[in-house]
C-alpha cells in the first residue's frame, strides 16, 4: 500500500508518473501483436484492426494507473478491445461517416483489387463467412474457438453470463456454418474442424 500512496502524491504534482509510462510501454509493446490478431479475427480487416488496437490502447493508457495488476490486465485489455469493436459495429454505414480522424498506417493485400480477385483461399473464405455472423455471436465464437478462452473468461470479456456465452457461441457457429454453405462449402462441419 505504501508505494501506491507515494505514487498518488507524485501524480498530484506532475500530470503523469513517467515510470507508469515505462510500464505501459513494456506492456503495450508485448500486447500489440496478440491484440492486433484478436482485433483482426473480430473485424476481418487489417486497417480496422490497427484502428481498434490504437483506440483500445489509448483507453488503456488513460486507465493505466488504476489497472496495472499483472494478473488481470490482459483480461481488462481484451474487454476494452471488445467494447471498442462492438461500439464500432453499432454504427451502420460507418464507411460513410466521419471517421474521427483515426487512420491506420499499413498496407493490406486484401485492399488490392488485383490480388483479391480469385484469391478466395480458405482463410479468406472463413473470414468472409465469419463477417456475416452478427457481432455478439461473432465475439463469442472468436473468443471461445480462436482465442481458446474458457466460458468463464469469455463471459468476463463480454460482460455477460456464462449461459449467454454458450448460447451466443452455439448460435454463432450455426450462423458461420450457414454462411460457409452459402459460399459453396458443402460439408461445413468438416470444414470447421479441418481449418
Amino acid at each position: 500500500m505504501q508505494p501506491r500512496r507515494a505514487r498518488l502524491c507524485v501524480s498530484l504534482v506532475s500530470p503523469r508518473n513517467s515510470s507508469d509510462d515505462d510500464e505501459f510501454r513494456r506492456f503495450a509493446t508485448a500486447a500489440i501483436a496478440p491484440l492486433g490478431r484478436l482485433a483482426h479475427a473480430l473485424c476481418g480487416d487489417r486497417h480496422l484492426a490497427e484502428d481498434l488496437v490504437q483506440t483500445c490502447l489509448i483507453k488503456v493508457h488513460l486507465a493505466w494507473p488504476r489497472i496495472r495488476h499483472p494478473e488481470s490486465v490482459d483480461a481488462y485489455v481484451r474487454k476494452v478491445l471488445l467494447r471498442c469493436w462492438l461500439n464500432e459495429q453499432r454504427r451502420p454505414w460507418r464507411r460513410s461517416e466521419n471517421r474521427n480522424g483515426e487512420l491506420p498506417d499499413a498496407a493490406d493485400e486484401s485492399a488490392d483489387p488485383g490480388r483479391r480477385m480469385g484469391s478466395h483461399d480458405t482463410r479468406e473464405l472463413l473470414r468472409l463467412a465469419l463477417a456475416e455472423v452478427p457481432p455478439r455471436q461473432r465475439a463469442a465464437v472468436v473468443l471461445r474457438y480462436w482465442s481458446q478462452l474458457s466460458v468463464t473468461e469469455t463471459a468476463a470479456a463480454m460482460r455477460c453470463s456464462e449461459g449467454t456465452v454458450k448460447s451466443q457461441a452455439a448460435r454463432g457457429v450455426e450462423a458461420l456454418r450457414a454462411a460457409l454453405q452459402r459460399r459453396g462449402v458443402d460439408d461445413s462441419h468438416a470444414a470447421l474442424r479441418s481449418y
Binding site: 479475427a41 473470414r127 452455439a170
Partner: peptide, 28 residues
C-alpha cells in the same frame, strides 16, 4: 453434450505474422 462443446477450429483465421503498426508515442 452441449452444442457449445462441439469442436470448432478457427486457428487459421488470422495470419500469425500480422502485427499492427501502432505508434505508442502517439497513443500516449
Amino acid at each position: 453434450m452441449h452444442k457449445d462443446e462441439v469442436a470448432v477450429d478457427l486457428s487459421r483465421l488470422v495470419d500469425n505474422e500480422f502485427t499492427p503498426h501502432v505508434d505508442l508515442d502517439d497513443v500516449i
